[in-house]
């Protein structure tokens, strides 16, 4: 089990002074990308990158393959060595993204009977960019019958001045298994966060089972107050769908108000479990989410 999300962030702006990479790749290679000059002058819209990356896993009768792997814009998709029957794909950031005005989409399908894991190589950092327009990042996860998807990206960091609207749309079959982890850090060290809104909708067998919208950072109201984050800057969730679960576990409560808190409990559709956590740091957040996962009968922690 890992102790924390220690993967380096590759899209940090210069001057962060934290010793991590300051690489800021040139934003080229997508058909909709305006040239650097127009981006810099904030010229005419659309000022952002439009990119739609896709990947699809299929079962060939023997094991899981990944016949579709379409990289686009900032998303460079790469196959990793499989783990047993599980195919693995890593999303590498080919440039800093999302920036203001970017419209990014990532579509992942785990076809029937597949075993698929998708990770990202580095934290995703929402940055301000040259326009004040919001960036959008739409993740669509579709899991077929008897298929299993682990979606385990590195954290999303909302940097000062950025605005990102993120959506997760998860479509599951009745026999799908899913492990989804989503972690957010609001602001890099010693800076206020940008504005980060996330809408998560999960449907199972066509029926909605979870619909959730969070909004942090100004102009959201009282987002760091005692009803919402209580001053914590890291928040995240684990969504676990286990059709084989006989009886849902009783709610699990972890942590304390100062060092972060987590609840793991079944949704109304009791084969879907959700862990929700807030914590002062990403490391502490990961610790809480890992500990919550360890309470689930399936109980194998993601790497």
């Amino acid at each position: 089990m890992k102790s924390g999300p220690e993967a380096p962030a590759t899209a940090l702006l210069p001057g962060d002074g934290d010793g991590t990479s300051t690489r800021r790749p040139v934003r080229t290679g997508t058909p909709h990308l305006p040239d650097a000059a127009s981006r810099a002058t904030g010229g005419t819209p659309p000022a952002g990158v439009r990119a739609a990356a896709r990947l699809r896993a299929a079962h060939n009768g023997r094991t899981t393959t990944v016949p579709l792997l379409h990289s686009d814009g900032p998303f460079h998709l790469r196959r990793l060595r499989p783990r047993g029957e599980q195919a693995r794909v890593c999303v590498l950031g080919a440039m800093s993204a999302p920036l203001g005005g970017d419209r990014l989409a990532l579509d992942v399908t785990a076809g029937a009977r597949t075993r698929l894991e998708v990770t990202t190589a580095a934290a995703t950092i929402a940055l301000r960019g040259s326009t004040r327009d919001p960036a959008t990042y739409d993740v669509r996860l579709t899991v077929g019958e008897d298929a299993s998807l682990d979606w385990l990206p590195q954290p999303l960091i909302s940097a000062a001045g950025s605005t990102l609207h993120q959506t997760y749309r998860v479509e599951l079959a009745g026999t799908s298994r899913l492990l989804l982890r989503e972690e957010q850090l609001l602001g890099r060290s010693a800076e206020p966060p940008g504005h980060l809104s996330t809408r998560l909708t999960v449907r199972r067998n066509g029926r909605p089972v979870l619909d959730q919208h969070t909004a942090y950072g100004a102009p959201a109201s009282a987002w760091d107050g005692p009803a919402v984050l209580g001053g914590h800057r890291a928040t995240g969730q684990l969504l676990l769908v286990e059709p084989g679960l006989d009886a849902p576990p009783a709610p699990v409560l972890l942590g304390d108000p100062a060092r972060g808190q987590c609840v793991l409990a079944p949704l109304a559709d009791s084969q879907v479990l959700l862990a929700t956590a807030v914590a002062p740091t990403l490391a502490r957040l990961r610790h809480l989410l890992d500990a919550a996962l360890a309470h689930v009968p399936r109980a194998e922690a993601p790497s």
Partner: peptide, 16 residues
């Protein structure tokens, strides 16, 4: 569908 993590966490906590 606006949600607040702490209301969920402490709501379950309080019930216990």
């Amino acid at each position: 569908a606006a949600s607040a993590p702490l209301l969920d966490i402490t709501g379950e906590h309080h019930a216990a």
